[in-house]
Design a protein around this nucleic acid. Sequence first.
DNA 1: AAAGGTGCATACTTGTTTGTAGGTACGTGA
DNA 2: TCACGTACCTACAAACAAGTATGCACCTTT
Lengths: 132, 132
Amino acid sequence: MTAAPSDPATGFTCGLDATLRVIAGKWKPLIIYFLIQGSNRYGALKRAVRGVSDKMLIQQLRELEADGIVTRRDYQEVPPRVDYTLTPLGHSLAQALVPLCNWGSDNMETVAEIFSERERWQASPTAVASRR
Amino acid sequence: MTAAPSDPATGFTCGLDATLRVIAGKWKPLIIYFLIQGSNRYGALKRAVRGVSDKMLIQQLRELEADGIVTRRDYQEVPPRVDYTLTPLGHSLAQALVPLCNWGSDNMETVAEIFSERERWQASPTAVASRR
DNA sequence: AAAGGTGCATACTTGTTTGTAGGTACGTGA
DNA sequence: TCACGTACCTACAAACAAGTATGCACCTTT
């Protein structure tokens, strides 16, 4: 009783399922998104993706690299200089993220309100009655 | 040293960040996606979202409801009959998910290959040398 | 009388993901 | 000579998300 069988050839239940497995991870979508924006050096990425730690950033970049989404280029210089670029596959994925991004921008205030309300009834689980 | 400050009014670093917080959760995107496909009764959803447990499905539905993405309607019948529909906000979010879905469908084979390779070098972490 | 289907709830446990705190190498500028 | 900046790595701990198991209420069918 582990997962979902679905398509026996690929192992995914649907296209969305496949995509989600690639972009799973707290920072991956943001990383991909900032990469199309032009931040490609490691340090620049780290500043762009606010709040990410070295460990996480590296880890996710490695996975994205292994997944064929980004390419790592090491200039073999001192001080170190490394940049990351989207592969064609990664670029197409980034494009697919754009609508999500726009949705968030368009509804940011609504979402912000919703979240502040959510916190309110998480703090005091009262008056959550009237269920059924 | 907790999160990212960013936009002090909303608390999000960007539109994508806002969206990601709404759809965070292993099953939420799939739930939203199947809801536009027309599976709206609880049982139907459960069959559509393969592998999800009752606990998870309910939990995520409750959160989506609290977030104004779905509406729960209880018909007060016996045996119980409940269905879930997307709010206008939820529907627009669902539309934004469509490109992700298509990306997954278009690249499903590539992604499947990538994942089988990933498993291979996770099993034997050899020859991962030549770093730097 | 027992089993099955509906839509949940709840406690408990597991497992994966994320964060923290250090450390590395090399060269530059103060 | 000491701190600084680059791009990382590693062990450890904490947090959180998810899974498992069980139970309920009601009715229909067998």
